[in-house]
Amino acid sequence: MDPGRFVALGDSFTEGVGDPHLHHPNGLRGWADRMARQLGRLDPRWEYANLALRSKRIDQVVAEQLPAALALRPTVATFFAGGNDLLAVRSDVDPVLGRFDEVVGALAGSGATVVVFTAFDPRTGPLLEPLLRRVRLFNHGVRDISDEHDVLLVDHARLREYDDPRLWAVDRLHMNRWGHKRMAASVLRTLGLDHTLRLRTLEHPPPRTPLRRAVREEAAFVRGEVLPLLRRRVTGRSEGDLAAPKWPEPVRPAEGLKRLARTRGHAEAPVG
């Protein structure tokens, strides 16, 4: 693949929540920054912009990020959004997929090589089954959209190594450092590009949690993480309303993202 301009759109998944780093913008690194750095190592002419912001729903991504992304004329564009819509107390999957299709169609129509993602489908207990039914419907639709527009798909739901809790942050909604590294490697592999990322070895999975303990932990997770998240959805509070995109203007990752962040005064305390 010839060097060009990589533009990333979406929500916390692409902003990098779960992978804190003091010297990256918004205090986050994430798979897209890691992928951009690899592109810069492959060829210093690669450029990179990241418009993604945590908590954004798909309508907000369409309104706030899609026009800016198209104006940047990407040669490679990655897109994932809709997860925050699925977490809403009342959520209809069909309109979310309609907007997803709109974004993919616009990006593909621009001539960019487009990469989209399914949402991860955790093998979890019955407490989250209503949400997981929506996730599965959404993922089925995303696969159809990727086929219709002939774009590349990273099927996160079928990357079953992510069943391992060692790839997830405490909130179990966002990947941690090791999870983001693996995602960067997956996207690069999907694009047919090499990488030098060191991935955590997972040959020795953690022992199975006894059933009673697993049920207690699941209930505690819902109380401590899921319910507060749902309350924020009901009240309309959004962390993304207080943040700015990490890399709104193209940069050259070969120059070093940490150095670029320091030069521009972008690095902040970690979030998420």
Rank of each mutant, 00 (worst) to 15 (best):
Pro3Ala: 03
Gly4Pro: 02
Phe6Ile: 14
Phe6Ser: 13
Ala8Lys: 07
Ala8Trp: 03
Gly10Cys: 02
Ser12Asp: 00
Glu15Asp: 01
Gly16Arg: 01
Val17Pro: 00
Gly18Cys: 08
Gly18Thr: 08
Pro25Ile: 11
Gly27Glu: 08
Leu28Asp: 00
Arg29Val: 02
Ala32His: 12
Asp33Gly: 11
Arg34Asp: 09
Gln38Pro: 03
Gln38Cys: 10
Gln38Lys: 12
Leu39Cys: 13
Pro44Cys: 01
Arg45Pro: 06
Trp46Leu: 01
Glu47Lys: 11
Ala49Val: 04
Leu51Gln: 06
Leu51Arg: 01
Leu51Ala: 06
Leu53Ala: 13
Ser55Gln: 10
Ser55Arg: 11
Arg57Trp: 14
Ile58Trp: 00
Asp59Val: 08
Glu64Gln: 15
Leu66Ser: 05
Ala69Thr: 05
Ala69Lys: 09
Pro74Ser: 12
Ala77Asn: 09
Ala77Leu: 00
Thr78Asp: 05
Thr78Pro: 05
Phe80Asp: 14
Asn84Gly: 01
Asp85Arg: 00
Leu86His: 04
Leu86Phe: 00
Ala88Asp: 15
Val89Ile: 12
Val89Leu: 04
Arg90His: 14
Arg90Glu: 14
Ser91Asp: 02
Arg99Ala: 13
Arg99Ile: 01
Phe100Gly: 12
Val103Met: 10
Leu107Cys: 04
Ser110Gln: 04
Val115His: 08
Val116Asp: 01
Val116Gly: 07
Phe117Met: 07
Phe117Lys: 10
Thr118Glu: 08
Gly125Ala: 04
Pro126Ser: 14
Leu128Ser: 12
Leu131Gln: 07
Leu131His: 10
Arg133Asp: 11
Arg134Met: 08
Val135Lys: 05
Leu137Gln: 11
Leu137Phe: 00
Asn139Thr: 07
Val142Leu: 10
Arg143Tyr: 07
Ser146Thr: 11
Glu148Ile: 12
Asp150Gln: 03
Leu153Asn: 00
Val154Trp: 02
Arg158Glu: 14
Tyr162Arg: 12
Tyr162Val: 06
Asp163Ile: 02
Ala169Ser: 12
Ala169Met: 02
Val170Thr: 15
Arg172Trp: 06
Met175Tyr: 09
Met175Asn: 12
Trp178Asn: 01
Met183Tyr: 01
Ala184Thr: 07
Ala185Val: 06
Ser186Glu: 12
Val187Glu: 02
Val187Tyr: 03
Arg189Gly: 07
Thr190Gln: 10
Arg198Met: 13
Thr201Tyr: 00
Leu202Lys: 04
Glu203Trp: 15
Glu203Leu: 15
His204Phe: 13
Pro205Gly: 00
Thr209Asp: 06
Pro210Arg: 09
Arg212Ile: 14
Arg216Leu: 15
Glu217Ile: 04
Arg223Cys: 14
Glu225Asp: 15
Val226Ala: 12
Leu227Ile: 10
Pro228His: 07
Arg232Cys: 06
Gly236His: 05
Ser238Met: 10
Ser238Lys: 09
Glu239Thr: 14
Gly240Pro: 08
Ala243Tyr: 13
Pro245Phe: 04
Pro245Gln: 03
Lys246Pro: 03
Trp247Ile: 01
Pro250Glu: 01
Ala254Val: 05
Glu255Pro: 00
Leu257Arg: 06
Leu257Tyr: 05
Arg259Asp: 08
Leu260Arg: 03
Ala267Trp: 07
Pro270Gln: 06
Val271Trp: 04
